[in-house]
Amino acid sequence: MLKVLLLSLMALAHTEHGAHVHGTGKVSLAFDGKKGKLEFHAPTEAIYGFEHSAKSKKDKQKKEEGLGKLDAMAEMVVFDPALKCEVKKEIFEVIEQKNHSDVEAEYAINCEAPVAGSTVTFNFQKTYPRLKKVQVEVLADQVQKSLEVKKNGESLELK
C-alpha cells in the first residue's frame, strides 16, 4: 500500500523549493522547548506591492508601511494563548536583486510552556492579502511538520 502511495507521489513531484514565486512566502519555525525562532521570507511584491527599488515618495511610503507590518508577526502566526508566547522581531532585510527582491525577517519566540503538542494558527492574508500561499515548516523538538497555508485560519497541529 505504501508503495502504491509513493509511486503516485513520484508522479506528483511538484513542489520544488527555493525559487522566487510571486505571492508565495515561506515561514520556518523551530523550537527547543519553550524557546523558538521564526524565519520569514517573502517577495517584496507581497509585502509592499512592488519589487523595484523605491524612488518616488509614494513608493517609499508604501514600502515603509508594508515593512512596518512585519512587527505584527504575532497576528499572522498565532500560538495557543495558554502558552503565552512572545514574538519579537530581531532582524529584517530587503534583498534587492536584478529582477526581483525579497524580504527576510527573523523573530525570537519565548513561551511559558513547550510549543510541541500545541496547535498553531496562521492568518497571513489578514496582514498581507497579496501573500497567496505560504509554505510553513515547523521543527518543534521531535515534531516535524509542514503546511501550505492558502487562507486565514488554517492551523497545524504539532503532534
Binding site: 503516485s8 507521489l9 516535524q144 501550505e148
Partner: peptide, 16 residues
C-alpha cells in the same frame, strides 16, 4: 527536514 517534507508529500496525497 525529513518530517516537513514527508508531511508536505502526505498533504499532496490528500486527494487519494
Amino acid at each position: 527536514i525529513p518530517g516537513a517534507t514527508l508531511s508536505e508529500l502526505w498533504n499532496g496525497l490528500s486527494y487519494v
